[in-house]
């Protein structure tokens, strides 16, 4: 575990931001921190970054209680991110890298590698003002990872990215994961979760409402629904219930205690089956279900 969050609570003047949070962030995995806006994700991230502190509770980083020396091992890309507009790209990245504890020479060396990798060698002397928004986001990403942090915290990293840069970023994130970097990926957009995350935690109204392995959670939310394409006339049968049916495409729910083979056999007797596949709940569905029915 790179990070163990134990019983962390935080409240501001008149509202509770985090209530009794317990989470374990695994080493070398991508951990999705999900939740609607205002759920408390940013509050938790700020505590991990030591921008603020918890009211109660402890956080262990690599087994040691979180302290200022850990700042240099964390890379943080905030949701609201910016750069000094008048400063030159190279100078600015050097400055930010040095603030993260890198020596000037080491930082220069590492930055040059990234500039070659992203094919932006001639940007070094340009003022940030001259770069487009997409270009600036590349610079921000480099500033987040140049000091080779053990833990990378990305808050809505894809917001504002065009599809090409988003792909580039995704590839980089996966490469970093392969190299052993642990990544916390905070977002309210579920489609990126499916592709990238290994584990997730869902925060709603200051509390963790769901956490665990991505696939296990999916299985947990499976509702034995299938999608069917067919020719003929279809009605509910003894092994399944018809949920919707339109133009030769139907969705059905298996009755309890039957297997998918039994359902298929019954269907084959009634219609000509063209396609038959289980409907796996998307995180969007799970998200909406959990947030709108807190009792589950």
């Amino acid at each position: 575990m790179i990070l163990k969050i134990k019983d962390v609570s935080k409240s501001y003047a008149n509202h509770t931001a985090l209530k009794n949070i317990n989470l374990e962030i695994p080493q070398g995995k991508i951990f999705g921190l999900l939740g609607p806006n205002g759920a408390g994700k940013t509050s938790l991230i700020r505590i991990i970054n030591q921008i603020t502190g918890p009211d109660i509770g402890t956080i262990l980083f690599d087994g040691v209680e979180l302290n200022p020396s850990h700042i240099e091992q964390i890379g943080y890309l905030p949701e609201e991110r910016g750069l000094y507009k008048k400063m030159k790209v190279g100078e600015q990245l050097l400055y930010l890298a040095q603030l993260k504890g890198m020596s000037k020479s080491h930082a220069t060396e590492q930055l040059k590698k990234w500039f070659i990798k992203f094919d932006i060698k001639d940007w070094w002397e340009k003022p940030v003002d001259d770069l487009s928004k997409g270009m600036q986001q590349k610079i921000q990403f480099i500033s987040t990872i140049v000091h080779e942090p053990k833990l990378l915290i990305l808050d809505e990293p894809f917001s504002g990215f065009d599809p090409i840069n988003a792909n580039l970023l995704k590839d980089e994130i996966l490469t970093l994961k392969e190299k052993g970097t642990s990544i916390i990926f905070s977002t309210h957009r579920m489609e990126s979760v499916e592709e990238l995350c290994d584990e997730i935690a869902l925060i709603n109204k200051s509390e963790v409402v769901l956490s665990g392995n991505k696939n296990e959670i999916r299985n947990q939310f499976k509702q034995h629904k299938y999608k069917l394409e067919y020719k003929g006339e279809l009605k509910s049968g003894s092994s399944f219930e018809l949920l919707s049916n339109f133009n030769g495409i139907a969705s059905i729910r298996m009755n309890q205690g039957v297997s998918s083979n039994q359902v298929l056999q019954e269907l084959i007797g009634k219609v000509e089956v063209l396609a038959f596949a289980e409907i796996i709940p998307s995180f969007n569905d799970i998200f909406i279900e959990v947030v709108s029915n807190p009792k589950n």
């Binding site: 943080y76 905030p78 991110r81 507009k85 603030l99 500033s143």
Partner: peptide, 16 residues
Amino acid sequence: IEEKSSRIIEVLISSV
């Protein structure tokens, strides 16, 4: 004001 409105502040205070 520049640091706050350009939103670089959050990056800075995660380092210092």
